[in-house]
Write a protein that binds this DNA or RNA. Structure first.
Length: 429
RNA sequence: GUGGACGUAGCUCAGAUGGUAGAGCUCCGGAUUGUGGUUCCGGUCGUCGUGGGUUCGAGUCCCAUCGUCCACCCCA
């Protein structure tokens, strides 16, 4: 007796019953990204480990303990991508996409992080990301945020709020960071264990601690947004003006920082309180220094990533139906002669009506069983072949969903024309 | 990585105190031998997550392990 295999922990199958929702989600994403003039870029799942270490940051949790890293057969250290920006930047530099030009790009696909799975957090998860290169002003930041806001409207997601903040230039942030460390050092006794550890590694992250006992220390801490350099301040003010003009509501969250080292100036996050502890469905920001840091031209960049599992969970909770993938017609064929002729007829109908989704019954069975399958398939029409139809060279067409519909006996050409007309009358996306 | 709850049929779940497994839905067949969806009748489906242990006897108790969920942590 062989042992039952199970999927790797935290890596989920998307079953037929769920895939319609995913397809609808992906279609909407593509349409909205296209509406803003973003082009798709397709990237490998695996990159050199060093690319992630240098871009995401050596001291981050992702690089320190969450990456799927392995040696390939040459002994080179490779890593399953934990996020998409690093690979996207690498590809743009490698192929000269940033040479005297701007880019608006998007990508989609699985990402991998070795975390303890819980709702909305998996070891293989799916993101769609958008990145814009070569544009330094707040207008492109605002465009990306407008794009995401439009996405929620198109998807019918209401329970999300936008939080924004500015991290300032790296120089200004370094000054602020020193002040923050000095402040926390002075009140070290009030910090919890995690925060004391972060004081040495990533002090800004202390700001978004969820520990209620830390509230008092955090309330009096120096505020990042009051220590911005003049340029970052102007950038942030203009972003707010643009969002106001576009009618996108937001909250300023001075404690919003990002877990990845490469961000500067604008950071934003869309959050919901309906998904439990994993409430961020989309997050991003500006990363002007990253391209140069990875050996490219000094090019500003800004982007976001959103989590498809989390969006799918929101859509499922809202009862969204997903894409209609049901067949339009189900071909019933009873008897050996009818089954032989049925296969040929099905091919002929697909030739003459290319948009038709036609499911042919296979596996035999009587009229009762085949009609039951036809009904369960969700098809609008049953196409019926029995001995009588085979003898006459006809096919019976029965509407399954229309209580007033009449069953017709048609020639194959007439059936094709009938089905084409029925599809045209109710076009499906 | 830390803490907690939980794994019984394909799905949703019942199975006090240990005595050898049930319901609804699904699926298949019949009533209706060429017509689905409603109704009625009948039937299939389980190594009770896995591996050990205690016991005359374990779905039930103990240990380990795998997995799911929740919180921390982290993040999309």
């Amino acid at each position: 007796m062989s042992k039952l295999f199970q999927a790797i922990r935290g890596m989920n199958d998307i079953l037929p019953g769920e895939s319609a929702l995913w397809q609808a989600l992906e279609t909407t994403l593509r349409e909205v990204l296209a509406a803003y003039g973003y082009d798709e870029i397709r990237l490998p799942l695996v990159e050199k480990t060093e690319l992630f270490a240098r871009s995401i940051g050596e001291a981050t949790d992702i690089v320190e303990k969450e990456m799927y890293t392995f040696a390939d057969r040459n002994g080179e250290s490779l890593t399953l991508r934990p996020e998409g920006t690093a690979g996207c930047v690498r590809a743009c530099i490698e192929h000269g996409l940033l040479h005297n030009q701007t880019q608006r790009l998007w990508y989609a696909g699985p990402m991998f992080r070795y975390e303890k799975p819980q709702k909305g957090r998996y070891r293989q998860f799916h993101q769609v990301g958008a990145e814009a290169y070569g544009m330094a002003g707040p207008d492109i930041d605002a465009e990306l945020i407008c794009l995401t806001a439009r996405l929620w409207r198109r998807l019918g997601i209401g329970a999300v709020t936008l939080q924004i903040n500015s991290l300032g230039s790296s120089a200004a942030r370094a000054v602020y960071r020193d002040r923050l460390v000095a402040y926390f050092e002075a009140r070290r006794a009030e910090l919890d264990e995690d925060s004391q550890r972060r004081l040495a590694t990533n002090p800004l992250r202390i700001l978004d601690s969820k520990n209620p006992a830390m509230r008092a220390v955090l309330a009096d801490a120096p505020v990042l947004i009051e220590h911005l350099d003049a340029e970052s301040h102007a950038h942030f003010e203009e972003l707010r003006t643009l969002l106001d003009a576009a009618g996108v509501a937001y909250q300023i969250n001075p404690h919003l920082v990002r877990g990845l080292d490469y961000y500067c100036k604008t950071v934003f996050e869309w959050v919901t309180d309906t998904l439990g502890a994993q409430g961020a469905i989309c997050a991003g920001g500006r990363y002007d220094g990253l391209l140069e840091q990875l050996g490219g031209p000094a090019t500003p960049g800004v982007g976001f990533a959103l989590g498809l599992e989390r969006l799918a969970a929101l859509l499922a909770a809202a009862g969204q139906p997903g894409a209609d993938a049901n067949p339009h017609a189900y071909l019933i064929a009873v008897g050996a002669a009818a089954q032989r002729w049925g296969l040929a007829l099905a091919e002929r109908l697909r030739d003459q009506a290319p948009a038709l989704r036609l499911r042919m019954h296979c596996g035999g069975g009587g009229f009762k069983a085949q009609f039951r399958r036809a009904d369960h398939s969700g098809a609008r029409f049953a196409l019926i072949l029995g001995e009588d139809e085979v003898r006459a060279g006809t096919v019976a067409v029965k509407p399954l969903r229309d209580p007033d519909g009449q069953q017709l006996t048609l020639s194959p050409d007439q059936a094709a024309a009938f089905l084409r007309a029925a599809l045209d009358a109710t076009p499906r996306p």
